[in-house]
């Protein structure tokens, strides 16, 4: 292939995001340092002194767009970046912007965020992809360190990142686990959840909690029927679908369906 004389340059950009995401990025620094042999971390003001001028081969963007100033800044980042990768629920889904759709915002914020007071500033939060072309979105709230490193290395090397989008069940079966809903009657959200964790919870005989957000072909409605068959209540289901990736559309829709049912005091959830 084309031989590059210098290593690819990587820049890390922070936009509006909650503490969880920022912490996690810093957490990944050890792993990123391993990559440092192969790439040059050229710009990462939050973590290092790196402040090399652009353009950059790969830009990692964390956080969402909340102000007109940020709209301009992300356009600039796009211009000086080869590949642009967004990481975390804030950047990929605008964080909690979908919150306004929930009837009980306050209650919801308490579930999800450690510092609910921060939420206010994000009232007009939108995902990066609404403003500029994004080459890859890495999901997670927060993102998985190892997936982050895989995405950075893949783009630095010009290959497609090995980030699966199928269900947790694929990893679960490959790992040789015994399926917990079938063999133990334990509710499991694995079928609607994107793989990436290695099916950790089912490996310990627990149901999947849907950390990685919806898989590419999720059927949340069908899933809810099965969870109900295993005795999960509407309330538990709302919580399940909101725990980590509340703002992902399919999870949100499903949780709202159950919430409406609960409010209406209906025994049966609408079809």
């Amino acid at each position: 292939m084309t031989t590059t004389t210098t290593t690819p340059t990587v820049a890390v950009w922070k936009f509006a995001s909650c503490d969880g995401c920022q912490l996690n990025l810093l957490n990944a620094e050890d792993e990123l340092l391993d990559v440092a042999e192969a790439v040059t971390i050229a710009y990462f003001p939050e973590a290092t002194r790196a402040m090399l001028p652009g353009p950059y081969d790969v830009s990692i963007v964390e956080g969402s767009i909340t102000t007109p100033e940020e709209v301009e800044r992300i356009k600039h980042v796009r211009e000086i970046s080869g590949a642009l990768i967004t990481i975390g629920a804030c950047a990929t889904h605008g964080g909690i912007q979908a919150l306004r759709n929930y009837a009980d915002v306050e209650e919801y914020t308490r579930y999800v965020y450690a510092h609910p007071e921060y939420i206010e500033t994000l009232e007009t939060s939108t995902p990066i992809s609404e403003h500029v072309k994004v080459d890859f979105e890495l999901r997670g709230c927060p993102v998985d360190k190892y997936q982050l490193v895989e995405v950075i290395s893949a783009f630095a090397q010009g290959r497609r990142p090995r980030i699966p989008t199928y269900s947790v069940c694929v990893e679960c079966k490959r790992a040789g686990n015994i399926c917990v809903p079938v063999a133990h009657g334990t509710p499991c959200l694995g079928p609607v959840t994107q793989a990436g964790c290695g099916a950790i919870c089912p490996s310990f005989n627990r149901g999947c909690y849907a950390c990685f957000g919806p898989q590419d072909s999720q059927n949340c409605h069908g899933m809810a029927d099965r969870l109900a068959a295993l005795g999960m209540t509407s309330e538990e289901m709302i919580r399940a679908y909101r725990t980590f990736n509340a703002t992902c559309e399919p999870f949100q829709a499903e949780s709202l369906r159950h919430e409406r049912a609960r409010k209406a005091g209906a025994e049966e959830v609408e079809a």
Partner: peptide
């Protein structure tokens, strides 16, 4: 069937 199927892949993997 599609309304019930979760496209989870379990059937094929077992």
């Amino acid at each position: 069937v599609a309304a019930r199927c979760l496209a989870c892949t379990n059937c094929t993997l077992v």
